[in-house]
Design a protein around this nucleic acid. Sequence first.
RNA 1: GUUCCGGUAGCUCAGAGGAUAGAGCAACGGCCUUCUAAGCCGUCGGUCGGGGGUUCGAAUCCCUCCCGGAACGCCA
Length: 544
Amino acid sequence: MTPQDTLKRLFETTISELFDVQTDVTFEQPKDRSHGDLACTVAFSLAKPLKQAPRSIAEALVAGLPGNEVIASADVAGGGFINITLAKAQIFDVVPTILNDFDTFKRPNTGNGAKILLEFVSVNPTGQMHIGHARGAASGDTLARILTQCQYDVLTEYYVNDAGNQMANLAKSLVARYHQALGIQADFPEDGYHGADIKALGEKIAQEAGDRYLNDPDILTIFREIGLTALLDGIKHDLGRADVQFDSFYHETTLYKDGHVEDVLARLKASGYTYTKDGALFLKTSEKGDEKDRVLIKSSGDYTYILPDIAYHEQKLKRGYPTLIDILGTDHHGYIARLKASLEILGYEASQLEVLLIQLVRVIRDGEEVKMSKRSGNTLALSDLLDDVGKDPIRYFFAARSLNTHMDLDLNLAEKQRNENPVYYVQYAHARISSLLNKASLLGVEPTAKITRETLNLDILTPLLNHLRHYPDVLSKAAKTREIHKVPNYLHELATLFHRWYGEEKLITEDRAASLERVHVLTAIQRVLANGLTLIGVDAPDVM
RNA sequence: GUUCCGGUAGCUCAGAGGAUAGAGCAACGGCCUUCUAAGCCGUCGGUCGGGGGUUCGAAUCCCUCCCGGAACGCCA
């Protein structure tokens, strides 16, 4: 039980006894240190129902609190704030908690095993990953790690669109490049992919296979397969370099092979929510909140993209994941309502699908926006960004901003500021602690099971220890609200508090008793830093 | 025109009912014969896009307007 839990119970019981009302008491961390370790505003919210001034309620409440071991002092301030100073033992308690059982400390049971299937990236395998994809990749992977640590049962999945038109265009583009590489005049398809990677792949095939495929009637099928494999491998390689992990790659083609698409189509028809108009089959999504009805089967007889997508999402639910999270770019926002409507028609709840929209990143180079498109071949490869800037700054950069933020990525600035990225500030704190622990070790000071606080200057350390104590709360909130940027922000603040402490006193000295106590605190800080950095996919170096 | 986002310090962004709105970068001034100066301390910097409203209290909630981004297809 944390001091906060104890306080909450204490307050709620006292309020119930004094005023005969039930209320949910929360505490906040005051910005100003002179306002104590925790602040409570419950007196304000009680003022109206009790028809009393908040100040007098607060005073009565403080006076009525029973004796306890948690509170050192509780004062009424301003119009009715209750500022609480915790007992020193309570503040320090976080250190032994972390050292004795960090595994429990870092894993708040927010999810309680709830199963979530998180889909992200899902870039069409028609080219290499570009910078625009990096945000989704970093955000999704970080969210998965946070959710998992908060005891959600998460499956991360990449949906491979390997059945649609784009793959046909990819095959045609490859054939054209192959022909050109063999010196044969070939027209490039209208919707083809002009990327240099596609060109290189066509040349590679020509080099390795010569003219073997030239008159093969199945050349499109073969090249489609070669292209898919090569490009997907490339994508997986880039993801690996960015430390983005997937549990599963789900291929659109399996939806057709296993009959899921036909099955869903049959059930949609049977639902009574379909009708034929102008030779096309429509689904009445407008009756479930969509702007208008959507076409499932074109008058040409081809399926639209949405049909396999409905089948895919239902498939995810059927695999035993009652909650689905999709991370999509905002350019897909119009797509949410129709998908939710479709799932409702199939008998599911719209709320089972949660879509996190990430704002598209605008890339600026030399003061101008760089427009990217795989068709035109004008892309900035993620692999180049990884080469130039490095994994850690990229991951931190994307993890540190709320998904809703419209971001500009200035390439000139990114390179110039390679060494000014906040990620190094946090990593430096970790490395500095390693160095201190090394020094202590050389002096023969090693962590022990007995954790004391005789010599520690708690005046200096209190903000740091308070902040440490809130780590599980931060994780829990980040998991619940899917606001991953709270973690990097927390880590930055923790690093600041540590660097400040480092500047204020010499930590490892000839005084072995004092050094040992500081070693314990340092170890606790370092564990949280290392764990937090892992969550955002950033390395925690011992030396910088 | 409709829908979804955003507008907070010169720049990049936190803060999302609480006390005097914060951090990084940039600018300026201090701090290394001492544990890593990728650090610390200080200064400068704001009509929280504008205007109404709700509230004891609004950057935060509601309404409205302005500006910017995205989407509105029998493309995916």
